[in-house]
Design a binder for these strands. Sequence first.
DNA 1: ATGAATAGTTAAACTGTTTAACTATTAAAC
DNA 2: GTTTAATAGTTAAACAGTTTAACTATTCAT
Lengths: 154, 154
Amino acid sequence: MTDKNIKDLVDRYIAVSFSVHKKAEQLIQDEIGSGLTNDQHYVLRYMNKVGTCTSSELADVFEVKKSAITAIITRLWEKGLIQRTRDVDDRRVVYLTLTEQGQSLFDKTEDRIHKLVGSFINQFDTSEINQFINTYEKLNNILIESCECRGNKE
Amino acid sequence: MTDKNIKDLVDRYIAVSFSVHKKAEQLIQDEIGSGLTNDQHYVLRYMNKVGTCTSSELADVFEVKKSAITAIITRLWEKGLIQRTRDVDDRRVVYLTLTEQGQSLFDKTEDRIHKLVGSFINQFDTSEINQFINTYEKLNNILIESCECRGNKE
DNA sequence: ATGAATAGTTAAACTGTTTAACTATTAAAC
DNA sequence: GTTTAATAGTTAAACAGTTTAACTATTCAT
């Protein structure tokens, strides 16, 4: 591949990924309403998936420091969306779970997001979607490997 | 497509796009060094592309309010990377350009980024890259249309 | 039993963001 | 022409998210 091709590809990729990222965040923001930020929504999403987790686990998953998680968790906790429960055996550990309110908020939002996504994927055929997400995941693996080589463990 | 398929697709897409976004930002951060944030780099990138621009233009391009641009521009200006020049005809307007220092910093960084990207795209064949970015751009257009329908002009 | 490691929090500092008020300037209406 | 609108940009206050560094409390290891 020539240098110019690489340059064009970089420009094109940065432009489209910026725009898609921005638009997607905006659409999600519309669905979750003004009471929650996107990042807070992603935390609820993860907790919905795994049921119970800890701050350290969230810091690993979202690739940020634990103190960043504390800030987000505290805000969700103040909104009454999550619960903090100390482990009785290892009293350093705090288990995080969705409250009923948090669960029902997430469920409602997720419904709307699924409807929205449904309306988008009608416009692609299945093979195009599969091809796209496969390449995306392949790119992800290459980036992960590259980050590990460079010692960017997190 | 079934509801479960949609759910799986949403989960898979969110996971991979989060991870790729994070890794890409990290790799770019490694290349641009600690003196600059990613957002600041993207502003330099745009200015390198167009030569001269205004704050209002940047606000349009990056889809943020003008005051957010002022903050970023001021930080780049304090680092001596960009120049502010008042228009002599319309004295409300301030033209923004890269200083020599800003240009040379961007050029050096861009070289390294191109080398890095070059090492990645070796691992895909051309048709896969084209297919991927075409679908990505198609998705972008769908999202743009959807945002416009909902009145999210910016 | 002491010292090291772990889980989580707190505080300070910073970037990026929005809203709202403001200045300065230009354009439009009359 | 003067007054009114709109435009370009900045400033200030407030907030979310982030990191670093110091700290508490607890558990593990030797």
